[in-house]
Amino acid sequence: MNKVCAIEDILDSLQSGMTLGVGGWGGRRKPMAFVRELLKTGLKDFTVVSYGGPDVGMLASAGKIRKLIFGFVSMDLVPLEAHFRAARQAGAFAVMEIDEGMLQLGLKAAAQRLPFLPTRVGFASDVLTTNPDIKTVTSPYADGETLVAMPALPIDVSICHVNAADASGNSRISGPDPFFDEWLCRAAECAYLTTEVLVDADAFNDPLSALQMPIERSLVRGVALAPYGAHPTSCAPAYGMDIGHMREYSAAAKGAWAAYLGRYVIGKDLDAYVAEVGGAAAIDALPLPVF
């Protein structure tokens, strides 16, 4: 069983119009190497499900999003995502803007192959008025409470970036927070991982590291090597956010997107990108963010 592939193979499995789940959270552990490769393709009209960061911003500026399912888009230490904002303000894509907890419930419903999960979240807010498709349900028990029926959010393909993976699709997230990658994978028809390193299966033969392995291999169709693949987002504990690059990227939302693409994306493979942003040693030296 060898699931090792290239990012190009992940792209080959995609079609325009699909629903994509993107792992990570805000400015942290985003599969940016994959996102940059996706920008180079003619694929478009995606429904994107994300705890959004520059993944959403880049796909938005590239005009690849038909609908965004999200609770927020931010780069953490650069709080507002300029590319997302510009596209959102232009009405460039449809939105399903929901509470972060509802997003998780929608993923869990899909993961459990259920039509919805009940919650109180959303009531009395504009999440329900702006999403008239979200229905309510009445508890069949004595309480009779009316609850929001958060619909399942099934995904066609999810992509997450991990610290280490083996050829079978086992993987480890070494940072302190695995975020919601597990649920993005469980809600998806199939998931692909990009990874900082490919390791032998023996590397995971350790009870403590097993606690950092929320994604079992049956969820994973392919594993692509992408060292520094989260840059400019962080990949704890290996490297922090590249705040300088995030600021440059943000500034590019005002008329310099083509220049940004030209310098960092078009015609650049991952090695060339890493060199362009300062080299491996520079990324290794990026301090982990202090909050």
């Binding site: 609770g71 927020f72 904002r85 509470d99 972060e100 907890g101 509802m102 109180r120 999440v127």
Partner: peptide
């Protein structure tokens, strides 16, 4: 305007759930 806002901020984040819980 919600469809084409003058200023897009973060998104609702966890506010709807925080405030009812």
């Amino acid at each position: 305007d919600y469809a084409k806002p003058k200023t897009a901020l973060l998104g609702v984040r966890g506010y709807p759930g925080n405030t009812v819980n």
